[in-house]
Amino acid sequence: MSEEKIKQAFVKALAIPEEQVKDSLEYNSIKEWDSTAHMILIAELEDVFEVMLDTDDIIDMSSYAKAKEILRKYDIDC
């Protein structure tokens, strides 16, 4: 399940409980999702899905919903 993997990447990178990972979760909207966490998140997603994200995709990944949308472009079914 790719969506589950994405969710777990968020849990790990942001160090937040799973219940908080929702489509509406946005970058810089909670203190846990700051620049440090964002960088760890990108590294985690690249690692889990074995992809190299484009610069544009990294800076566009501004919410959980957006993350899924972007990863679909890399043929990840979620």
Binding site: Y27, S35, H38, M39, D56, I59, D60, S62
Partner: peptide
């Protein structure tokens, strides 16, 4: 704007 944002670039 943080370095890791579209707005910054």
């Amino acid at each position: 704007q943080p370095l890791m944002s579209r707005e910054f670039w």
